[in-house]
Design a protein around this nucleic acid. Structure first.
Lengths: 199, 199
DNA sequence: GTCTATATCATGATAGAC
DNA sequence: GTCTATCATGATATAGAC
């Protein structure tokens, strides 16, 4: 019986595809997409150029797969939050908590999702702001208006104002401008954010 | 008597240096820094490669000069606002008005200043968030706290929350996600933003 | 499926005439 | 100061053995 992917993963730490994506995430965020060559990725991942081009169509395809993976994981998290919490306040606050935590624990993932100029190297990609996670955030806010928790206004404006402060703080943290970890700032930020849109 | 720069500017529309910077701004924001070659800039500006390398040290130097010019112009605007208005509320509101207007009238300038990943091609550049304009915004907010207009908290948090919504909306507009011009949204955004931090 | 070796091409930057 | 012509480098992507 041949080695299944699962068996292989146990032996070699990870399948080539995953190793490549992990290396790409690190190198793209550290040095930028255009400052990272496919050779760099191959070396860092410990695989050959040939293997990379067997698993991926081209360099752009690596970035695309990475982006899709990260967004899908984010969508899963938001669905989870929707399932557990019922009020818009609880949902949005929990999301902010998680965004802050992810920024601390997986800054590279956050940076690539949020802060990369995808249009420069992913012509096909939708801008982040109109991606699914952001659409789900807007939907949460819209429901909050129907429930009477949030003032009535354009949901786009409301969700931007509700999460804008947190988002800018996340980019500041990723830029190294903020020294303290984000979770320590949560109460202050949430207080401001909720005041902005609450009835 | 030889042609002075001023005379020349009148004849040829603009000096080579300015033509290059204008072309670079357009091409960098349209296609990205790394998707724009020096040849592209030369062609677009109607000057030769040799001329570009006479006026600028290298490609990075073009981006650097552009960035410095735009930031300096922005600093001038903020100083002007500080001179004309006295309360934090008036100052911040006027700044938001201007940010929205600049986004509509000079979207490329706004995009390059705010939304470009400068660290990818300007290793020496400070992150935008810690650049002078942002520092001046924080200072405005801090003074607002002393005057009792703004709740007492970390000025970094306050200014991020106050301008975060507007900033995110600007990036959404630059991404083409927002169809309506920003000034039409001003009242709604300002209402949210000021509530976030006001006493 | 993985590897090495290589083809092809575009780019940043320079040389040197005018 | 401006130009044309050219160099040198390093990138993406492919070919083909194993």
């Amino acid at each position: 019986m041949g080695r299944s992917p699962a068996t292989r993963r146990k032996r070699d730490a990870a399948a080539p595809r995953e190793r490549v994506l992990a290396s790409a995430l690190r190198l793209f965020t550290r040095h930028g997409y255009f400052n990272t060559s496919v050779h760099d990725i191959a070396r860092h991942a410990g695989v050959s150029i040939g293997s990379i081009y067997h698993h991926f169509q081209d360099k752009e395809d690596i970035a695309h797969a990475l982006y899709a993976d990260l967004l899908a994981r984010m969508v899963g998290r938001i669905e989870q939050i929707r399932a557990v919490h019922t009020t818009a306040r609880d949902r949005c606050r929990t999301l902010m908590v998680q965004l802050f935590r992810i920024t601390e624990e997986q800054p590279e993932a956050m940076e690539f999702m949020l802060y990369a100029k995808h249009r420069e190297f992913l012509p096909s990609a939708t801008p982040v702001c109109s991606s699914k996670p952001f659409a789900m955030m807007r939907e949460m806010v819209r429901e909050g208006m129907e429930r009477g928790e949030i003032r009535s206004m354009d949901p786009m404006i409301a969700s931007t104002c509700l999460f804008g402060g947190a988002m800018r703080l996340i980019t500041a943290r990723l830029d190294g401008v903020l020294r303290e970890p984000l979770p320590a700032q949560l109460e202050a930020v949430w207080e401001c954010s909720w005041r902005a849109v609450a009835v």
